[in-house]
Structure formats: structure tokens, C-alpha cells
Computed example of a mutant assay.
Amino acid sequence: MRIDVLLSGFAPFDGAAVNESWEAARGAAPLLREVGLAVETLELPVEFGEGGRLLAAAVRQHVPRLVIATGLAAGRTAITPERVAINVRDARIPDNAGASPVDAPVVPDGPAGRFSTLPIKAMTAALAADGIPAAVSQTAGTYVCNDVFYLLQHLLATDASLTGTRGGFVHVPAADAVDSETAARALARMTDVALRTEADAAVAGGAEH
């Protein structure tokens, strides 16, 4: 049965006890179910390849209208929908399986980048109107977040059975910048906006660096 929304977050990594992205995803799900949406959530391992594989399997199983993968961006102070995933794996630290790829492609012979199909500017504008810090991000890094993002967008672009599914990636900051309840509300709000918005808002969302 087709669902409305699939939300994913990551398991803890690098010695942390929790991962704020998973807290946001599982906190947003009941808020969306309260308004009648069919929602599934998935906690992904912080492992190159495996996280994307498990997300792809869930997408094929549920065929959602919308997929929003989330990850932690410690050091950021705002909720940041990502514009583009790049076709590279370059690990500053090992993933949870001990892998440390350097300058490796996510998908051999794949395009250099895959863009989000979410209305990222409308989503950030909605959060700003709610008083929640938000901005479009131009980079998802080169770690497992970007890996999952690229694999998701590659799947949606190449699997004809998923033509009606849109997807993308959102980074949430650490809890000392945005608490988990606010992050969950923000993710639910962005999901609602994405479901109701076909064409993105034509507003500035660029960056000088």
C-alpha cells in the first residue's frame, strides 16, 4: 500500500548517545499522523552504502509520495534543507562499520550531482514565518549524509516505478542549537509544505561561500 511520507534519521555515531536526526524524524511522525497522513519512519545505520541501500528498499516497499531523509549537522544553528548531493565519498572519520573511503564515487559513472526534488525554499520560508531558524544549504558534506542523499536522488531519478515520488535531505543541528521538540515540529511543517507545494518559491536562497 502506498503511503504519504517516509522519514529517515540516523543512528548515533562517533561516540554520541543519540542522533538528533532520528529524534526529529520519530518526533515528526505522530504530528503528521494526527492530520491523517500515512507515515513510516526508518533509522539508518551510519554506514556508507548500507544506509542508502536500506532507504532504497523502504522506498520501493512503501512507494511514498514524499521521502525526507535527515541527518545531523553539528555546528549549524538552523534547520537546513539541502540543495544538491555530490557523487563523492570522502570520510573525515570512519563510519560505524569502520569504512573510511577517500575520493570514491557514490555511484560509479553517475552524474557529478543530484538535486533535491523538494521545494526547499518554500520549506525554509515556512519555518522562518514560524520563527524557527532555517536556511537552504548548498552542501551536504562528503560523509554518510551526502551518501544517503545521493543514493536516494539517484534512485528516484532512475527507477521508473517511483516517478511520482519526490525526495530530498534535511540537516538538523545539535540539540544545543535547536531542541528536539522544535526540530520535530520543523520537520513536520516542512513535510506539510512539501506535500502541498509543486513549484518551489522563487526567492533567493543562495550563498556567497
Rank of each mutant, 00 (worst) to 15 (best):
R189L: 12
I3S: 07
Q61H: 15
V39S: 00
G113H: 04
M1F: 06
R185S: 12
V172D: 05
Q138I: 12
R89Y: 10
E208C: 10
A204D: 14
S21F: 08
E82Y: 00
A38I: 04
P108S: 04
R65I: 01
V35C: 11
F10N: 07
A177F: 03
E43L: 07
A24E: 09
A99Y: 12
A129K: 04
R33Q: 14
A199D: 10
G167E: 04
A58D: 14
V193W: 10
E47D: 05
T158S: 08
R83W: 01
G71K: 09
A202K: 03
A204R: 02
T124K: 01
M190R: 08
E208S: 15
S8D: 07
R33E: 15
V67H: 03
A28F: 03
P133G: 05
D147K: 00
L42P: 02
V148P: 05
V46A: 04
G98C: 13
A125C: 05
A135Q: 06
S161F: 00
E20D: 15
A207Q: 12
R65F: 03
T80M: 07
Y143T: 07
R60S: 11
A160Y: 00
V67Y: 06
T197Q: 05
L72V: 08
G168D: 07
A74T: 07
P94S: 14
T182W: 03
D95P: 11
S8P: 05
V107I: 15
T197E: 04
A17L: 11
A125H: 04
P45N: 04
D176R: 05
I3Q: 03
P30H: 10
P133S: 02
